[in-house]
């Protein structure tokens, strides 16, 4: 098997960064997320490959929080598109976990299947190579396995690396992965190494049958109770690796302008504000319910899997201590027969 010695990691990252924009998990001051390796400052930044994960997910590499779409000039009724900003330059996400790789697979479903192709997403995605980092030690808030994600066999990976102590086992999984293998050349060695065994999960979510059960729970009083303390900020949606809702807006001055899209959050009332003044999800209970129905029921109906990959970030960052594992289990255990 091929291995990458940890002592050669920086050299390998430098090598990979030559032909592509390379994103790695970093702790940077107060921040924790995926940042370009080219911006890495030894001393103040800390590479987080030995940690469980980082707070801000890698979704921004394929789906930035703010993305310019096109610029235009408008003179009278005539509008001329000047430039479209599709972004096909090569990128590599290095060291993302199975939960985050699975979340990008959800994006692929949304932006590239069912007869809809989002060309902006496609330009980024087709030119992004994923080096996934197999996970053997679930953290305090991890529950990926319960959501159908195998932490040791990340989906969507072009390369899987496995931490075997002094070395990473390097497994190429696709032609994109082969290119990285070739680029690393002699930095990779042929040696035997053993990946560790998967440690037990501390969080126990029981998602089995939940999508089906939710079909009959739209008006269930449980939502009132679950949403009671939600403050409808957007933290959960922005730290979520699989939340993909966006808004398209415009900035213009005089005859010039550009359109861009930016993350939106179903937690905001403005998200569903309609032109005539009506808001179908005017209160926090309705918005909260929609978020969890989308994650646990609607997405599963459309794409055959939940829109939650069990990374635990929302549990970590929620100001009100709302815990999606408890929500899944509460729904699972709810006795709906008495409420009809």
């Amino acid at each position: 098997m091929q291995i990458l010695s940890k002592s050669k990691l920086e050299e390998a990252l430098n090598q990979l960064g030559k032909n592509a924009e390379l994103f790695v998990p970093l702790a940077r001051g107060e921040e924790s997320g995926f940042y370009p390796w080219s911006s890495y400052q030894a001393g103040s930044d800390r590479l987080m490959l030995d940690a469980l994960n980082v707070l801000l997910p890698p979704k921004s590499v394929v789906f930035p929080q703010t993305e310019r779409m096109y610029s235009f000039t408008s003179t009278g009724p005539a509008v001329e598109i000047k430039e479209t900003f599709e972004s096909p330059q090569p990128r590599i996400i290095f060291g993302l976990r199975a939960c985050d790789a699975a979340a990008i697979a959800c994006f692929d479903d949304v932006f590239l299947t069912m007869g809809f192709i989002d060309s902006f997403y496609q330009a980024r995605r087709d030119n992004t190579t994923i080096v996934a980092h197999a996970c053997y030690e679930p953290g305090a808030n991890c529950f990926c396995e319960a959501m159908g994600v195998d932490p040791t066999e990340p989906v969507n990976a072009d390369v899987i690396i496995r931490d075997a102590g002094e070395v990473y086992i390097w497994e190429s999984k696709s032609s994109k992965g082969e290119k990285l293998t070739a680029a690393l050349g002699s930095l990779l060695e042929n040696k035997e190494a053993a990946a560790p065994g998967l440690k037990p999960f501390q969080q126990q979510a029981n998602y089995e049958g939940v999508a089906e059960k939710l079909k009959g729970m739209f008006e269930d009083p449980i939502w009132e109770q679950l949403a009671a303390t939600c403050q409808t900020c957007g933290i959960c949606t922005y730290v979520c690796p699989s939340c993909y809702c966006f808004d398209i807006q415009v900035k213009s001055w005089g005859e010039e302008g550009y359109r861009f899209r930016c993350y939106d959050s179903c937690m905001y009332s403005e998200y569903t504000q309609m032109a005539g003044g009506h808001n179908p999800r005017g209160n926090e209970r309705e918005r909260f319910r929609n978020r969890f129905l989308h994650k646990l029921q609607f997405f599963s109906e459309r794409y055959g899997k939940p829109l939650c990959t069990g990374c635990g970030r929302c549990i970590v960052a929620c100001p009100a201590g709302i815990n999606i594992v408890e929500i899944i289990n509460n729904i699972k255990e709810a006795d709906t027969s008495v409420r009809a």
């Binding site: 800390r46 940690a51 469980l52 707070l55 305090a140 970030r313 970590v316 960052a317 100001p319």
Partner: peptide, 14 residues
């Protein structure tokens, strides 16, 4: 701060 405590135990920060 519970948020600090949960972050300290999250594995997402040094």
């Amino acid at each position: 701060d519970p948020l600090q405590a949960v972050k300290d135990n999250s594995g997402f920060f040094p």
